[in-house]
Amino acid sequence: MIRHFTVLGIAVLAGLAYPHLFPNALTIAISVLLFAGWATSWDILGGWAGQLSLGHAGFVGLGAYFVAIGQSDYGLAPWWAMMLAMIAAAALAFAWGRITFGLRGPYFTLSTIAVAEILRMIAINEGWLTGGATGVFIATLPEPFGIDLFSRVVHFHMALAFSVLTVAIVIIISQSRFGYQLRAVREDESSAMAAGINPVVVKLKAFMLSAALVALGGGIYGIFLSFLEPHILFYLFLSIQIALTAIIGGRGTIWGPSIGALLLIGSGEIFRAAFAQANLLIYGLLILVVILFLPRGIFGEIQRRAVRRRYARSTQG
């Protein structure tokens, strides 16, 4: 645990230095950090608890719209709006999980797509609330302690704080009772029940935490975009991107989702130059490579080897 927090500390220092070193490459860094945070949050449910969601864009949209509507219609400061969005996301996850966690197999995954799609249709059609298909614009934002929330550097720091928060939470979870409950439920629900674990409760907690954190990142994304369109925010492909980032990087590991974000969003920019809008092609190709050759994901395979090596060394010594 100390080792992981040391690595995280180094990452924070590198992050703080970044805007000074590459002041012209902030946008891509913000994307990487937001995706790292989303994928890490997704992974609490998708990796640690083993419940594959393809609807997390719904929570991104929820966070972003709460901030935008809160600001434009109710004059609500973004931090309060984000807190409300997190509560709403957790409540939605609770209701959603109650319905679907009793079922196994592909039903949960299918239902996540359906719920996110319904949210998208609400965002498009309820123009009085959401600005409809044209979207909603954040025209003014408060200036807490004189900080300009329209500044890219500020967006960068918010995204950095978000991704660091999610990783820190996962580091703590990984060593806690909850973390072991999650893994047990993922590996074998019967065996988990024999250990006194209620699988539905554990999965619900994971879903609620995952949803709330993604909504927080969504709120930051909303401030970053300042112009929200339902087609982008609730998009099925955003859900797919978040899930595949975590899976390619390594599900159920502390660093896998962040490594996935670095690799995919970083190279995604290169791909965008080569293939214009077809940049999701790389996700399709990489997920096939991972499924066929690296089933635990990039970091998952690395970690697996490290565990084996450590054990081999301990038996020799």
Binding site: R183, A184, E187, D188, A195
Partner: peptide
């Protein structure tokens, strides 16, 4: 039914909690 992705110790940690 060991939790296959976990180590032996982690397997017993789950119920030990």
């Amino acid at each position: 039914r060991p939790f296959e992705e976990l180590t032996v110790l982690e397997n017993v940690l789950v119920p030990a909690f």
